[in-house]
Amino acid sequence: MKDTVEIPKISVIVSTYNAEEWLQKVLWGFNQQTFKNFEVVIADDGSRDATKELLEQMSKEVFYPIVHVWQEDDGFQKSRILNKAVSSCAAEYIIMTDGDCIPREDFVQVHYINKEEGYFISGGYYMLPMNISKLITLEDIQKQNCFNINWLKEKGIPQTFKNNKLTANGLISKLLNWITPTNASWNGHNSSGWKKDILNVNGFDERMQYGGQDRELGERLFNFGVKSKQLRYSAVCVHLDHKRGYKTPESIAKNVGIRKDTKREKRVWTFYGITK
């Protein structure tokens, strides 16, 4: 029986749009978490009824509460639905990820134990090709096979440096987090921060469609004085492959312009966010 009275320690926002097969795998992943005191808030950018039906079914199968936040389909409006999801979060601390990223069993715990006032956390992901994305089953997620580099190699994953994302632990993962040249930016697929900080910069800029709206939020957090922690080798999820039909040169160009303005003017607040 789920306790509806207790406020969860963590709210996990999962964005989705008409991708039930992938979303189910992600929800299975959250059902394996070692840290249990969280809710999952689905930020649904206008999916068909099949997503709602899946969530009703999964609510009966998983230990955590699922909150479904939906808006009418109006093209790619991820920033808008994420703002609605942030407003719906019950916890003071929010993890954001996508409905195509299966979390490793320690995913929520790593975010939880590393959270700190005045910081947000930047995690990474491990990209999987389509054939492996398809063949991952519930059992593979329960046994954590999809995070096991030997299992993945058997399926054809090549030997590359990025495999360290799955194999590194303890001091090695700390060292790799420290030396990586990648910026500790706000990444929509794997980041976390305090709800009050996100509200203080007014959430996502809803003018922004595909391409960098997550980074722009992070840039305003930096301007506000929030620092970031690099945990790309500690907070681990695997990214399932998919097409990106919503990626257009126009949306990328528009977003690049908005990000330039944010940096140049050291903007903290967007007038196109949660508070209109």
Rank of each mutant, 00 (worst) to 15 (best):
Leu27Thr: 01
Leu171His: 11
Thr270Ser: 13
Asn183Ala: 13
Thr262Lys: 01
Glu250Val: 04
Arg259Leu: 12
Ala90Gly: 07
Phe120Gly: 11
Val5Ser: 08
Leu135Val: 15
Gln57Phe: 07
Val201Ala: 10
Gln142Ile: 08
Arg267Thr: 09
Gly257Ser: 15
Ala90Lys: 12
Val226Phe: 07
Val62Glu: 02
Trp22His: 15
Gly156Asn: 02
Phe204Trp: 10
Lys162Met: 10
Tyr125Pro: 06
Pro181Ala: 04
Asn177Pro: 00
Asp3Met: 04
His189Trp: 15
Ile258Cys: 08
Tyr119Asp: 07
Phe224Leu: 14
Pro103His: 05
Tyr93Thr: 07
Met96Cys: 15
Glu154Gln: 13
Asp3Glu: 04
Lys84Pro: 05
Ala50Asn: 08
Gly212Asn: 04
Pro65Ser: 02
Asp44Tyr: 00
Glu61Pro: 12
Asn223Asp: 11
Pro181Tyr: 03
Asn163Glu: 00
Glu250Tyr: 09
Ala168Ser: 00
Trp22Ser: 15
Thr16Val: 02
Gly46Ala: 07
Val226Ser: 08
Ile95Gly: 15
Asp44Ile: 01
Trp178Lys: 14
Tyr17Leu: 14
Thr160Pro: 07
Leu217Pro: 12
Pro103Gln: 06
Ile95Trp: 12
Tyr126Ala: 00
Lys134Leu: 07
Lys260Tyr: 11
Phe107Gly: 10
Val41Thr: 01
Trp269Phe: 15
Gly99Asp: 12
Phe107Ser: 06
Tyr119Cys: 12
Lys227Phe: 06
Glu139His: 07
Lys2Ala: 09
Asn150Tyr: 15
Phe224Gln: 14
Val41Asp: 02
Lys115Asp: 08
Gly118Gln: 09
Asn169Phe: 15
Gln77Arg: 14
Gly203Tyr: 06
Asp261Leu: 13
Val201Trp: 08
Ser173Met: 00
